[in-house]
Design a protein around this nucleic acid. Structure first.
Lengths: 345, 345
DNA sequence: TTTAATTGGTTAAACGTTTAACCAATATTT
DNA sequence: AAATATTGGTTAAACGTTTAACCAATTAAA
């Protein structure tokens, strides 16, 4: 009910007997408008419950003040926290954030990009789906002339900004920790090799073993989709080996949870018989029994840095993007599942 | 790089020596345009890589083809799955979905609504924050003349559509189940009473006890924020009672997880000494040890119904909204944490 | 053969802003 | 007192579509 028609800048102008342009300027605090007029405009705007038409201003100014975010899934603590931090920074600068999820599907990711470009966002902050190998849909973002910032799951070939943790180094930290716990046969349930971050974790795992003069046993290196279900399966596979590992480093917490299940079902002592380490520090990791050692990915910093990087481009509006990596050191959080020696932390 | 300027409808018109209006109509498959012209337009559009300017069309037509979604948090399985299903239905009809999260904060929820209205969405599908009691910000949506559909966390006072499960009945199912397991002192760690769904669960709990002639012990009815941490605290509180409960029904899975922790830490046998039931059927609930009995909230159906309800309003564009409730029966999923008698399901 | 209907468009206005270009009135400088 | 600068605006065009109203040419009906 009420007055159906929305109040526009013109309505305000009519009330005050000034031009619409003056109203627009007043609302934008343009110095060429007197304080008296500004006050009056603000007052009338308030009275008439004026809501600026975002569409019109975006159309005219070419800026939508909208930023698109693409994540593989929102029900992961890392992604949802990162989004939250992106929002915090961007809202402050008057930007609004549109979230879309790809559900790890290449097709949905393409659709997401279309949606966002269609909505005329001023930029896109994205983390890629597991399935994605072809990158042409991301190329469309660059072609549109708006900044593209990638985080966590990125690809060098895109030649855009990337923010993430040092996955290679994280694997080293994990292996170092496990070796310090006297583990000698360390297995790795990794993600898909085609995804850069998982490949880096694998490489880090291999090199770290080398560094410690441990042999690389191909039976102990397994590729996984990293779902809980697949974690169970791959753990079972490891248990079926003639020579079982004495430690398992799983590249994702959900899969680590599955692995934990299997170990417990078979009454294998954790960490004494097999030590377990996850990745991502999901909230449940510290809640299960035993709590799972994991790696915190700094969603706080990553979100803020991604947002700031976007703002930088807007500010100096030079869209000459290049492969600029901002790499953070991740933090290993040691918990019972791998803490044989009861190290204090 | 490339041609900076985007191709518009006019560019296509120029190439074909027809009017922009004709192009617009051709693209919308208007019957007044010949098939030959349509084909030509489509071809040229393709060649010039034409992307329609959504802003302009939305401004002119008054429809943005955007639907806003507000959820308390995205890192809950229920909400993220619901969003996914909303998207599925709406995308098919040419609508795009903008997701925002309130983080259970009243202030952020207000900001979310402003963002969405500002973005000129054609409708909003929302689930309220825990903190929210005042509803004036939702009134703004109604005032804007666009449909508002609420789900899971709604309020009767808003007088709009609501889709959710039958919380009252769900409590009955849970209590029935626990009584069937010979539990006599059933506690309830509930959500905030001010939130309708939690209040309904509490009411259901109380009435179900009555039905089974069990006394209502106020010590056994506790209000909680339902975070994992608070679940721990409230469980501890129950354990400190002179007379402990023999079953605990927690109104959320995250809090149930916390409760489970405490029980296990104190070596209390589950379900023999204390049976445990959660709510929401988060994925981890079936993964922990022992798996937690929980209630599935039909995110699939709820998401689809919410989307369809929105579409209904659009179709018959009569915005005479009223309190129309669509209530689904929830499903109790019995797992080890409460299955004393090893019922088969 | 005249009239009416259909086909395939065109023209121009509109959606609500923003912004470059302009201008009159007043204030300041020389 | 004349020249210049500042203040506080106004006008009009533009952003890229959509759409109501119009029209010429062709086809069909009477």
């Amino acid at each position: 009910m009420a007055n159906k028609k929305k109040t526009t800048i013109k309505d305000i102008a009519n009330v005050l007997n000034i031009s619409a342009a003056a109203v627009s300027k007043a609302l934008h605090n343009n110095p060429r408008i007197s304080d008296k007029t500004k006050k009056a405009v603000l007052q009338v705007a308030e009275n008439l419950n004026y809501q600026p038409n975002h569409l019109a201003s975006a159309l005219r100014s070419g800026k939508s003040k909208l930023v698109g975010v693409i994540v593989p899934k929102t029900n992961s603590n890392f992604f949802s926290a990162t989004i939250h931090n992106i929002e915090e920074v961007l809202n402050e600068e008057g930007y609004n954030v549109i979230i879309t999820q790809s559900n790890e599907s290449y097709k949905k990711e393409c659709a997401n990009i279309n949606t966002l470009l269609f909505t005329q966002v001023d930029g896109i902050i994205a983390s890629m789906a597991n399935e994605t190998t072809d990158l042409s849909h991301f190329q469309k973002i660059k072609d549109a002339g708006i900044p593209l910032i990638t985080f966590d799951r990125g690809e060098n070939d895109l030649n855009v900004d990337y923010i993430g943790i040092d996955d290679y180094e994280s694997s080293h930290k994990i292996v170092n920790h496990l070796v310090a716990q006297d583990c000698k046969r360390i297995a790795h349930i990794g993600g898909f090799k085609r995804t850069r971050i998982y490949n880096n974790r694998i490489k880090g795992y291999i090199d770290a073993l080398k560094k410690h003069n441990l042999p690389l046993d191909n039976e102990l290196l397994i590729e996984s989709s990293l779902t809980t279900e697949d974690g169970r399966e791959k753990m079972q596979k490891l248990l079926n080996l003639k020579q079982r590992p004495d430690a398992v480093y799983v590249a994702g917490d959900y899969a680590a949870l599955g692995a934990l299940q299997v170990l417990k079902e078979q009454n294998i002592k954790i960490p004494e018989e097999i030590a377990l380490v996850g990745f991502g520090d999901e909230p449940f990791s510290k809640m299960v029994t035993p709590p799972i050692t994991s790696v915190n990915q700094h969603s706080y910093k990553i979100g803020r840095m991604a947002a700031k990087t976007f703002l930088d481009y807007i500010e100096k509006d030079t869209f000459k993007q290049s492969l600029k990596k901002q790499i953070l050191e991740a933090k290993l959080i040691v918990r019972e599942s791998s803490n044989k020696k009861n190290d204090l932390e």
